[in-house]
């Protein structure tokens, strides 16, 4: 496979193993560009990309913008505040307005699960889901897989434990679809109140005992506890959460000796992860950020660039 036969990237659930492999392979060549002294190729010159964010974001938005600019696309950015969205314009009208301006690809973050599906049906251009509600965050899932691949040289046969607020996490969902398709075992762990109903019906192992979930793991992916969850009765106190579910050095000893620790950011140091782990030898959190740009370059290239040599075009 050398081409993506699709208009949109909405999630990893409906993506095949070979599509995921193609994106990861392409991301590896993109990473080479990022290592050059002059980080720019003309591949997407003349293409216009719009980031349309209905939720705040620093890293995902910047990462997509960096990816687009490295490929020489023009980027325009719209967020809820300071746009017609604040005046009450509907999602449909916002999309149609942008389409009329000739946008080739829409990078959409939205608090409503499924909003990118709606967008994909509304516009002719490509839609990339940059996180929709509690549903999926496919580029995060892909960059996590790229990071694991770099660390371990493979995905198949690995045990990946995802710890934290699984209920509200689109990162967990994209990771579980992507990783299981690539042959890894996924363990999900968190307090019962933050595990979605019937999650055990998916091809994953579910734990409420974090120690058991970490036992023998190759990778521990720690999810952020969002501030707004802290006072909504999902758990009694931050103190208790940190004690029962936080990832610290001692707990990490149960994992494989060469365990890789990841976090999609932004981190709450001292709550879901202790600073010594976050900054420690097993953590690859900043590598994830770099890989994020490479993966997003790959997505844009495969959707918009189609063919041509990335290095010399």
């Amino acid at each position: 496979m050398d081409k993506l036969e699709r208009k949109d990237i909405l999630g990893l659930q409906d993506m095949s193993q070979s599509e995921i492999q193609l994106i990861l392979d392409t991301a590896v060549s993109m990473k080479e560009i990022l290592a050059r002294p002059v980080k720019k190729v003309p591949t997407l010159r003349g293409k216009t990309i719009c980031t349309l964010f209905y939720e705040p974001s620093t890293r995902t938005r910047t990462s997509f913008e960096m990816a687009a600019k490295t490929l020489s696309a023009d980027v325009t950015s719209i967020s809820t505040v300071g746009s017609s969205i604040a005046k009450g314009e509907s999602f449909k009208d916002t999309l149609l307005t942008l389409q009329a301006m000739g946008i080739d690809a829409f990078i959409i973050r939205h608090q409503a699960g499924g909003a990118p599906y709606f967008a994909a049906q509304t516009v002719r251009g490509s839609v990339i889901n940059a996180g929709d509600g509690m549903h999926e965050h496919p580029s995060q899932g892909l960059l996590d897989m790229l990071t694991i691949l770099e660390e371990k040289g493979r995905l198949e046969g690995l045990v990946v434990t995802i710890v934290g607020d699984i209920l509200h996490s689109r990162v967990a969902r994209s990771n579980l679809w992507g990783l299981t398709k690539m042959g890894a075992t996924v363990r999900l762990a968190g307090p019962k109140t933050l595990l979605p109903l019937e999650i055990e019906k998916l091809p994953v192992e579910v734990y409420t005992d974090v120690d058991a979930a970490i036992e023998g793991a190759d990778v521990v992916n720690v999810l952020r506890i969002q501030l707004e969850r802290m006072n909504s009765g999902f758990f009694p106190s931050i103190r208790e959460y940190a004690r029962m579910f936080g990832i610290n050095k001692e707990r990490l000893r149960r994992a494989k000796p060469d365990v890789t620790v990841m976090h999609p950011g932004p981190m709450n140091r001292g709550i879901e992860i202790t600073p010594d782990v976050a900054d420690g030898e097993f953590a690859v959190i900043t590598d994830q950020v770099t890989n994020g740009v490479a993966v997003r370059m790959a997505l844009l290239y495969l959707l918009l660039g189609g063919s041509g040599n990335v290095g010399t075009a």
Partner: peptide, 15 residues
């Protein structure tokens, strides 16, 4: 409805 379908769709469910 709350269940496997809402869990997969990432939508809030009513039990």
């Amino acid at each position: 409805n709350e269940g496997i379908a809402s869990t997969v769709a990432g939508l809030r469910g009513m039990p």
